[in-house]
Amino acid sequence: MTDQPSYPTALGASSRTAITLLGQDLAHDVMGEVGFGELAYWLATQRRPTPGQVRVFEAVLAALADHGFTPTAIVTRLTYLSAPDSVQGALAAGLLGGGSRFLGVTEDTGTFLHEVLEGHPGPLPTRDADWDALALETVHASRTAGRFVPGLGHHVHKDGDPRTPRLMEIAAEEEQFGPHLSLFAAIGRTHPQVLGKTLPLNGAGACGAALADLHLPIPLLRGFALLARAAGLIGQLAEEIRNPVANDIFLSVDLNNRPVAPDPYPGNRP
């Protein structure tokens, strides 16, 4: 008789009479006892978070849930207009738009900061002056390499993203203000010396720094942004059902298109 393969998991497992999740009885130890934010953190790390970690994590989720008529929200509403029988398609369309310009900044910033810290020789700074020196070195290196520093700038909040100081305040209150947030804050203080202009630290970047300081898996940081935005997109769909605007958006483009002569693609130059 051939041995059956074994697939070990510490996540969900079912028997005829019970369901376990993370070693807990789902029905009795999790349902009604563990909040969704706490559970999401626990699932990703297989480590139960402290109350302070939960507060910071849920602050990040709130910060990223919805930011108005962004492309992710618009495409969700338009997809629902086109296929109202496919809520999952509308949600998926919005989530698939989470990239380098929207939502992906959370991952990009957390990864960028983590790589700087991982590559830093010796102990990490403990004073603001030393963090500022590291930040200056980091911004200089990025500019020399012709790369942007993720998390700097915002297309709307040009005078400061209100989410950033509040998230930093919450992290400090809960003793979760770690090296990633420290470096990000120092970049905010020092980058004008290199760039010659002052840019706001955007909220998505602050979220990436905070998530990294919570010791969440760096490759999954965009996943947490998408988790937050899924709630926001459900809200967008709920409002679209009650007060639809997608058809107006569609018609504003469809009724105002302007025919022009063909513009042949030039091809790829060597």
Rank of each mutant, 00 (worst) to 15 (best):
V245K: 10
Y80E: 13
V54N: 00
I187D: 01
R101Q: 14
L211K: 04
A141K: 10
T109R: 02
A186G: 03
L233D: 09
P270K: 14
H154I: 09
A246R: 06
Y80Q: 11
T45I: 06
L61V: 15
G178W: 13
R147I: 10
V105K: 01
T2A: 05
G205V: 15
D132H: 10
V87R: 04
A210Y: 02
F148R: 12
T190Q: 14
D130G: 02
L95F: 13
L221C: 06
T198E: 10
A230Y: 03
N268R: 11
L255K: 07
G196Q: 06
A261R: 05
D128M: 14
P51E: 00
T50F: 11
G68P: 09
G146D: 10
S6N: 11
L64H: 12
P266M: 08
P266H: 08
L134C: 04
M31D: 07
P123W: 07
D128Q: 10
G52S: 04
V34F: 06
A63T: 15
L199F: 03
Y80M: 13
S15I: 03
A141H: 05
Q46I: 09
F250Q: 03
H28C: 06
Y80R: 12
L201W: 14
Q88Y: 13
G153T: 08
P8W: 00
A62S: 08
L21K: 14
G146E: 06
A261F: 09
H180K: 05
H120R: 07
A141P: 11
A261M: 03
G98C: 15
D3R: 07
E173P: 00
R143G: 12
R147M: 15
L195I: 12
T70G: 14
D128P: 10
R101E: 14
I74E: 03
G232V: 11
G235Y: 01
V194P: 09
A73R: 11
L237C: 05
R166C: 04
L39Y: 09
A172K: 09
T2Y: 03
S252V: 00
N202H: 00
P259G: 09
V245F: 01
R77W: 00
L220S: 11
P259V: 09
T190V: 15
S182L: 06
F102M: 08
H180Q: 10
L227V: 09
I249R: 06
W131I: 09
P192S: 12
T111Q: 10
L95S: 15
E107T: 12
Q193D: 08
R166Q: 10
H154R: 12
L22F: 12
P5T: 01
V253A: 11
A228Y: 00
F69M: 12
G68M: 13
P262A: 15
T106S: 07
H114R: 14
A63Y: 04
L221S: 10
A63R: 06
L226K: 02
S86I: 15
G208T: 13
R77Y: 00
V194S: 02
N243F: 13
H191V: 11
N243T: 15
